[in-house]
Design a binder for these strands. Structure first.
Lengths: 344, 344
DNA sequence: TGAGGTTGTGCAAACGATTGCGCAGAATTG
DNA sequence: CAATTCTGCGCAATCGTTTGCACAACCTCA
């Protein structure tokens, strides 16, 4: 409404892009002052501070991210490295994890950049790191020998892994896969299932290594022995799994412990096809709950992990690290054992 | 190997961060020359150009993204706006779409930023647009009345929608949902299923509006009438769907056309529970194939869309737009009608 | 009242690229 | 061979912030 002689703010086109200098001129202060008011760093009078903040509130001013980035050598970007998800199996995990990470990133004024890789191609990472497009990275899915971990370590970019990492100096966030499996198997044994078969695969991935480790620990805790023929850690395809189920039925075990929901799904189907009733003729449990397990007539005993939370925590740990707080290297998240009909 | 007096490149620590000036000094040219060599714009001698490019190849130089961004007023970032995915239903679509977009973005030297929203909160968008963190945006899932579309339109940021948009001036990429449904329904009718029921919901979303529209068009094309009691466009929960199936069985229809895989899944289960055999007692088709449909004993007639491709195309159209080429406003993608047992 | 500290502010130099302009020297022209 | 155009390159300004430093004005205490 004010009719002062400088009318450029009165034009119908409010699209004009303001810089910190415009704000400064408008308020009769210097750009430094505006900058200090915004950042809260440096010496500035409380009154001036409020005046600047108020003006900014009312105006359409937003600091230019590129300029800020250049001056401060930080981008306010995080990247999340995702595997190529083959089919529906992994998607819920990684997507939900990403969602959690983004939530925390946003609420800390960071943006989240996605990079999908096949697990071998370092190019996209190198570009990002080289160009300095991100302040830190979240690595989902880690391997026993991991080129990404190695690359990031030597690159000097702060990063956190979702899932355990073989290098204890690396920031990592994970559910206690090993502990959870151990507890589950001990529970099964204590209920009389002394011969628990393990159906797994992809033992190059840390998460699978951990789960299998928990299985062994349970037997060790009871000073009992596992038998080689109960254990399968080479399963990938549905037909391999079906075959393994077949074999195990002949061997005669008390319970089939499935490394993940995908394997569990295949196992339940195979048992149904064979007319083997759960839990009467065979018990089944899964090391990882997902909605897949809701599709069966019988409810399945499983481990429940809060996936969204692992994404959130990963982002939080990384952001803490960037802020100079020293978050603990290993963050372990809770699990829940869900006992259902499938194990009597 | 050269033992000139400036030995700083011979140090063990190769981590040093190079700027364009370092490169220039090393080569005895000016920074402008290096810049021109990289960008290929401006006048520069072919020989010098090669020399610079060669040096950069061998060195660890990467242009600083922030500086480049500031100077050029562009970020080489795209954002993809994703809905919060409730459960497993939508996830494959949006995740796969994102994956496709990222693929194309990467191969054009763009990075992709994810933003998940509940469909109403504009804040994250405003921040990005205000800060100028992205050059363009991909909007997945559009509504009949869409606050995001309206915001982006007035903000001036280039954007493309995945799925039709009510405003024909907006860049949009979609499968021909309407045309595909029309063709499918015409096919069903021509095979003798004159009473095709429609089971849908969420009619505030463009994709659902389009599919239903195709259904109507098919009848219009044959100059036939639909009956109100065949049509349900208010279905959300499994129990609602089960109830609708019930009702439709009493009404007596020839085929149940399901708006998506989720509804189809519920329908098939309900029919199985009721002991209604497909296709003997009832025919079923889905307007959207997904792996969900592979779980049934009977194969399901459905429309197949290449989801990854829609993400790819969306990114491509947006990038073309940013590059000043004028991509056509509406990009329509192919579909495939997959006729299976469920419709005889 | 004057020495010493504190407080609020502005100046100007970064940050690392891009780009318009000018200027030599080479190439082309009549 | 002089006049003109063309080529390749460097200078310096620019993009929009941040931040170290200088400097007044004020406050405090002996």
């Amino acid at each position: 409404m004010s009719m002062d002689h400088r009318t450029h703010t009165a034009g119908g086109d409010e699209k004009e892009i303001l810089t910190i200098h415009d704000v400064a001129r408008e308020l009769g202060v210097s750009a430094s002052t505006v900058s200090r008011a915004i950042s809260g760093k440096g010496r500035i009078g409380e009154e001036t501070r409020q005046r600047v903040l108020q003006f900014i509130q009312d105006s359409s001013f937003h600091p230019n991210a590129a300029a800020r980035s250049l001056a401060q050598s930080r981008t306010f970007n995080l990247a999340i490295i995702m595997p190529e998800v083959r089919d529906l199996v992994d998607m819920p995990f990684f997507h939900t994890c990403m969602h959690g990470a983004e939530e925390v990133a946003q609420s800390n004024d960071y943006d989240l950049l996605v990079v999908t890789t096949d697990g071998t191609n370092l190019r996209p990472l190198e570009r990002m790191v080289g160009n300095r497009k991100v302040d830190g990275m979240i690595l989902t899915r880690t391997y026993a020998k991991d080129v990404f971990v190695e690359y990031l370590k030597q690159s000097g970019v702060p990063f956190v892994t979702v899932g355990r990492c073989y290098d204890p100096k690396v920031l990592q966030v994970d559910h206690d896969n090993s502990g959870a499996c151990k507890e589950l198997v001990m529970l099964l044994i204590s209920k009389g299932m002394e011969k628990v078969a393990y159906l797994g695969g992809g033992m190059d991935q840390m998460v699978n290594i951990d789960r299998f480790d928990g299985y062994r620990q349970a037997y060790a805790a009871y000073r009992m022995e596992t038998e080689k023929k109960w254990i399968r850690t080479d399963l990938t395809t549905k037909s391999q799994i079906a075959k393994a189920v077949d074999d195990l039925l002949k061997v005669g075990v008390d319970c089939m412990l499935c490394q993940d929901d995908y394997i569990c799904d295949a196992v339940v189907h195979e048992l149904a096809d064979k007319g083997v009733s759960i839990p009467k003729d065979m018990r089944v449990a899964s090391c990882h709950y997902s909605r897949l397990l809701d599709n069966f007539p019988v409810t399945i005993t499983s481990l429940k992990f809060d996936i969204m939370d692992i994404g959130r925590k990963a982002a939080q740990v990384l952001i803490d690290q960037l802020a100079g707080k020293n978050p603990s290297t290993l963050t372990m998240l809770d699990y829940e054992i869900s006992l259902k009909e499938s194990t009597k």
